[in-house]
């Protein structure tokens, strides 16, 4: 009897709710809004593999974490390092009814700039970058990677015995440039006499070139290395072979060299995606830039438990993190 009553009440509630759903939302939601329970079709076009232990993996992990709670249907095209191929894919996704197309790479900006006016009902997002090109259907996202870079640079300054440190970037744009600048500033804040070699390979995907640069730095006496982008795996291999310390960024790289990776700055794009998805569901398809940082938990420093990091270095790093988070310390961009 009790069960029957619950069923009856449930049916009445459901009917009432259905009536509300069919009458109320259409009158208040902005044009183009997508209901919170409607499946949102999201496409990700990324320059490297979904398991690259860096840039692409950080975005894939964030999308996966939101998949159920935000009702996302996700399609991923990885290893699209040829920009012209990526352009065709992005166009294809936009024309195929996707609500959001994420072009995950600084190199894809001009593609979105050209496509966005042709697909006004589709929301595009790209990063790391600050510009939406003044388009109402482009979101941009960026990472204050200089913050984590500074923290790790500070540790590098404490760990280096040769006082020679090598920093390798892909192309001097976006979060890679910020990370490199922040890292160098962190080293010099701790050890003003240190020599910090910096170079950019000119490619986001050339793992071999980055390995060669790492090798050159080790030969020049560097005992601490770091690098940014999905092309760092070769350089980490060199760090492992030559037993020099490595600082990672974008994703945890400890699995590649458990004894050499000191820590990694990990990106969590979920806060950015949440804002973008909420915006789309409310009918706002772009026109905003979102940022992850140490302060909003979009970035965190993951210490590698297998690396024998001296307690004073770890304590100093934590102090720098808290100073950045509370605003006592500002890392220049």
């Amino acid at each position: 009897m009790r069960t029957k009553s619950i069923w009856l009440r449930g049916l009445v509630t459901l009917a009432a709710a259905s009536a509300l759903v069919t009458t109320v939302p259409t009158s208040v939601a902005p044009a183009g809004a997508v209901s919170p329970t409607t499946t949102l079709k999201v496409a990700l076009v990324a320059p490297s593999a979904v398991n690259d232990l860096a840039f692409t993996q950080s975005m894939v992990a964030a999308l996966d974490s939101l998949k159920t709670s935000y009702h996302l249907q996700i399609s991923i095209s990885d290893n699209e390092y040829v920009v012209s191929d990526a352009a065709n894919l992005i166009r294809q996704y936009a024309a195929s009814g996707y609500n959001l197309v994420i072009a995950h790479g600084s190199q894809y900006g001009s593609i979105l700039q050209a496509l966005a006016p042709k697909f006004r009902k589709v929301s595009f997002a790209w990063g790391t970058a600050g510009s939406t090109f003044r388009q109402p259907n482009i979101y941009a996202y960026q990472a204050n990677s200089n913050e984590g870079g500074y923290v790790q640079g500070y540790m590098a300054g404490m760990l280096s015995k040769s006082h020679v440190i090598g920093v390798i970037g892909p192309i001097d744009v976006g979060d890679a440039q910020l990370y490199v600048d922040g890292f160098k500033a962190g080293v010099l804040a701790q050890d003003p006499k240190a020599t910090v070699h910096v170079s950019f390979t000119g490619s986001f995907s050339d793992v071999s070139l980055m390995a060669s640069a790492a090798k050159a730095y080790v030969a020049d006496g560097a005992d601490v290395l770091t690098g940014s982008s999905q092309s760092v795996v070769g350089a980490i291999g060199i760090a492992k072979a030559d037993k020099v310390a490595w600082f990672g960024t974008q994703w945890s790289q400890a699995s590649l060299a458990p004894s050499e990776v000191v820590s990694s700055q990990i990106y969590n794009w979920a806060p950015v995606l949440e804002q973008i998805i909420t915006g789309i569901r409310a009918g706002k398809l772009g026109g905003a830039t979102y940022t992850i940082s140490l302060g909003n938990n979009g970035e965190k420093i993951a210490f590698n438990p297998k690396y024998p990091l001296p307690a004073n270095v770890k304590a100093a790093a934590k102090k720098v993190i808290s100073e950045i988070v509370d605003g006592t310390l500002t890392v220049a961009q």
Binding site: V50, D52, V207
Partner: peptide
């Protein structure tokens, strides 16, 4: 392979 993983030089 997909993601290039290092082998020992």
């Amino acid at each position: 392979v997909g993601t290039p993983l290092p082998v020992n030089p």
